[in-house]
Design a protein around this nucleic acid. Structure first.
Lengths: 216, 216, 216, 216
DNA sequence: AATGAATGAGCTTTCATTCAT
DNA sequence: CATGAATGAAAGCTCATTCAT
């Protein structure tokens, strides 16, 4: 989040932005500030100042601070889902599992997601819908996708498990490891690709040992 | 300044009232409010009001809101550690693993711990020490204890693994499952004992399948 | 954070309302209250109440109580300097000295200046810059102006002294007399014009006796 | 005021101080704190803490913060007067004038007196009696003493002046010079003995030129 | 005489929100 | 539509003073 010192966005441009563009700008600023300072730690004045606009305008686009925050979370969740759906589709089982494991770890330990979970966790009491939105857009997506793959593998005898969904969960649990909790508590920085890869490989290896059908 | 008679003694430090009971009462109220409403969401006036006392008194016991919060976290962490160290010592390996797994799940999904993580996560940016304190008092303790047991089992051939600590982590990851993340995001309530037991049993079973030495 | 579109413009600085009139009104109220009750003795609530506005508005114009105070002092110092630069220019030496002496006494014993010194003296420890500002805007101005006149008089043989600046100081010291100290300690009220004139005349007379060249 | 870091005074001594001693201790601590931080800037808690005693005790000796302050000023004024009455009595006129001028400058620019004036000036509105007390104990004493000397000198023809008291004031005004005002505004530190001596000599020289009888 | 816990009013400052222009 | 001045409630914290022990 090194760009926090940046001044407000496009205030003197002669071309008047249409409603949608301005809305996007507001969300961009909100993203920066909310993720960096949390919900309570960010003031609407700050958002307006960084935006280069007035608070009145801000309230024309979003009814309240809560509404702005909610819109931001929705926005970020959409981006998250999109990011998860990357990776090759037509490789072997192990490669596909690895790709998902890597993507999941990368997501769940990324600065953005961690900041979101940190903030959503704090607000979980009052606004569990937001937590739900995050879960559905991130972990649940990964789980769904993985479940499908596992189910197919069970069907063709490559894997052996009673419940594909439970098996998929096992893989994700192994992938998360302790990284996630430590990240949430601010104990470690964003892991590099090598670390992510190592964690993913170990998780997949363990998963396969658990679910590989015993040779006849 | 020749009229200064005698040499003095340390006292610039804030004088603290000695009543341990009152201090405990304050911490109890703080526990209730902070865990329920978070750090930002709780005001010192509220604490004082619930206490039946005045803000002045509150500040006589704790220098600042932050200090009170810190004391509360320290307090709760101590309680957490104590709670983890329960359970039989002289049973078979599987029973001991089960006991730890249950204890760990119970702890990590308990209302208290979840609320603490939620709050500490939100504050992780500004006060990572508190997150560290929690991690050391909870997860790290379980991990240490489990590592010792696993190491012993490896030594006497009951288990097979390269790194006992890594193996222990695997068990805890399997135990946590998705329960933890969902709890943090406010998606599910505190699990009952049956659920905890089931999760623990599945985790231990998977762990043993991964680490049991292959019969010769 | 790839969704940040355009580079921005400076705006993190507090946005200030533009109404110069309101600002002047605030300063007027602050003048009244601060000079009457001192810095510590005046509360921002009081200022806001007297203003008929809210504290929020007050803080929109001035970042802090200190900032408001500083602005007030700056304002008053400017007014003081302006007031000192009155008086005829094209008269004889004695008349010009008299004019300056009168102006200096009038300034330095005026309610406004006395109140300012009283307050600035109390704050001298923490904010010597403000004391400096006062000195530069008042006494130093008089001294400069007087020094120039004395130097000119020495040059054309009307006065005799080694150091024109030191001589000017002597005149001002004689002019101040004990009036100043007593005023500062609240022992006497603002002197009337007759008193001021008498003091000025005596001071100038003594000064001329000290600095008049001895007739050949 | 370098001893401010010092801890409280005599708290664990077994010998219980009698009422008078304890009162003196309180005044000593009050002296340190009030002169260093001003009236508003010092809290009764601070005094009690530095004292090593309790606030209750403090209030047993002094009814209020104001009462304590008043007692302190009275105390200091007494000390001031005493300090002024030092110096030889049986020397020539010039030496005696010099001694008084030096003593006066030393007093009026000393850290203690300056701090007192600064504080008393700030309080002059509400408590002019305290300012009066200071003036009577310091400047007035010097003026009285000097007046007597001048009157005697006029009587025996050594000096020539209409009003001995006015003449004495002139000397003191010349002695104070601009040092005093700058000191009050925190612009210069306590002058050293050499500076004091130079100022005194110049003042006396000028005074004598003004008041020496013209040779017949 | 001494203690020290308790009080409650008051302080400076911040912020989400509204509304006339 | 956009502006930005204005609001008022509430926050964290301090302090002179009192009173039961």
């Amino acid at each position: 989040m090194s760009h926090l010192a940046a001044p407000p966005i496009a205030a003197t441009e002669t071309r008047r932005p249409g409603s949608a563009e301005r809305r996007a700008m507001i969300l961009a600023v909100a993203h920066e500030l909310f993720l960096d300072q949390g919900f309570e730690g960010t003031s609407m004045s700050e958002v307006a100042a960084r935006l280069g606009g007035s608070k009145g305008t801000l309230y024309a686009y979003f009814d309240s601070k809560e509404a702005l925050f909610e819109a931001l979370i929705t926005d970020n969740c959409a981006r998250m889902s999109a990011q998860l759906f990357e990776g090759p589709e037509d490789t072997g089982l192990e490669q596909r599992l690895l790709a998902i494991a890597r993507g999941y770890i990368r997501l769940v330990t990324s600065d953005m997601a961690v900041r979101m979970i940190q903030i959503l966790a704090a607000e979980a009491r009052r606004r569990p819908e937001l937590g739900r939105m995050f879960y559905e857009a991130g972990p649940a997506v990964a789980l769904d996708r993985l479940s499908a793959i596992v189910a197919a593998a069970i069907a063709d005898g490559t894997l052996d498990a009673d419940d594909p969904r439970l098996a998929a969960e096992t893989l994700l649990s192994l992938a998360r490891g302790k990284l996630h909790l430590k990240r949430m508590l601010g104990q470690i920085p964003e892991p590099d690709e090598a670390t992510i890869d190592a964690c993913a490989r170990r998780a997949v290896a363990q998963f396969l040992r658990l679910c590989r059908p015993i040779a006849p």
